[in-house]
Design a protein around this nucleic acid. Sequence first.
DNA 1: TAGCCGTGGAG
DNA 2: TCTCCAAGGCT
Length: 314
Amino acid sequence: MTASRMAPKTAELRSRTALRPDVLAHWYAAAARDLPWRGGGVSAWAVLVSEVMLQQTPVARVLPVWSTWMARWPDPMGLADDTPADAVRAWGKLGYPRRALRLHAAAHRIVTQFDGSVPASVADLESLPGIGAYTARAVAAFAFGARTPVVDTNVARVFARALLGRAHSGPSVTAADRASVEALLPAGPAEAARFSVAVMELGALVCTAGSPSCARCPVRMDCAWHRAGAPAHAGPRRKPQRFEGTDRQVRGRLLDVLRGTAAPVSADDLGRAWTDSEQRSRALVSLLRDGLVEQITDGRFGLAGEGAAPEGSG
DNA sequence: TAGCCGTGGAG
DNA sequence: TCTCCAAGGCT
């Protein structure tokens, strides 16, 4: 869903009925998953944490980690008071552990810069580490009721299919995509947020990337892609990511060792996690550079913040 | 901006 | 077994 693919004018898009807010709201009420970070009584912090955890990560894997996290750190102050190592360890095996580091840094910034309260504006949210264009708008809309386009890969795909008749959206969500979605957002903030979460849910449960379930789609009769016979995508697909044998895998192995031990470990201990010393060294350097790992004065390695000498000891 | 950054379940 | 990928962000 690049800018060029969004060529149809707003008025033309608006005239189409493929994504009627009322239809989507009705479907959402009946089909949506009951997720603990949705609905009333959930803090903005809880929403923010869920959105960060959900980046590139399946809901089923996020659920238990989010629950544990929120029980331990119900507000940003609690997390900011603990070490980055605590955050990385609590993150467990969710993947992309730098998110834990950034969430910890975000909590610190919320405390120091925003008086402990998650900011409500998109601009302030985007200024926080680990909070990008999508997450900032998701928090603004779902936690604060802001009328702002919440466009993730699901929303982009649903729009590409229902309104443009294309099988897939572009490789990444652009500002032009957000502008297109914003043009179709219901006028009321509450309705807009409901519309956004409904489209997201539709993309996650029905209008999936691989094998969409058009038969049970509430908007199939008005979907441009479905009406065109659901033609396959012609252009190039995203290059599949390989993992086995990559530095990413090595980083994961090293971090797994460090998560599993309370005390810092020696280089030899890390050596057992991966035999190729050159690759192991490269991965370790990158972890140090990222701030996930640190080396203490005796040469051993630990998660960031846990190997630090006590204050005043040197 | 294309490449990098984890993990493990599903088909 | 192997491929694909799941609510992005950062450089």
